[in-house]
Amino acid sequence: MEWKRIELPLNDEVIRGLRAGCMCMLYGKLLTARDKAHQRIAGMIARGEDLPFSLAGETIYYVGPTPPAPGRIIGAAGPTTSSRMDPFSGTMLGLGIKGMIGKGKRDLETKELIQKYKAVYFSSIGGAGAYLSMRITASRVIAFDDLATEAVYELEVSGFPVIVACDMYGGDIYEHQV
């Protein structure tokens, strides 16, 4: 099986072609968010506030990078455990995100929401922080900079390896084993 080249942002046609187990190399822009950014987004939406950025069509990467050493774009930047973001799946997909990148299993509700919203969940390679850092070509904080490593970053990636873990047809790579 070859790595499939995927340009970001994702579109419906691309997402229709993605099945659990498909190996993809991503090119383009991602937004990052992990525990605290999700909590803050959900809080703002609950209070009827506007977000300082749009999530429509975006792919969200669950990551909290190490600080960049001088001269570096970003530090180590591998995925964190996705299941901690499961409680926010409805909010985030409702705001229009089309893709999520993390590592590990999703809950049943998230998998159903992925089907409902015709989105996709990718797992990247957990613990490959140095390798994945080298696949990030630009990085800037766009919101919540007080959250430090948990701020929302816009990243540009080139050849960023991910595996389709949950697809819009209900496929789940983690259900094939054992």
């Binding site: 990551v63 990078p65 530090g75 922080g129 850092s133």
Partner: peptide, 12 residues
């Protein structure tokens, strides 16, 4: 890469 570039093995 971690050893050559002095990037931590894992971001955690």
């Amino acid at each position: 890469i971690a050893a050559a570039e002095q990037i931590p093995l894992c971001q955690d």
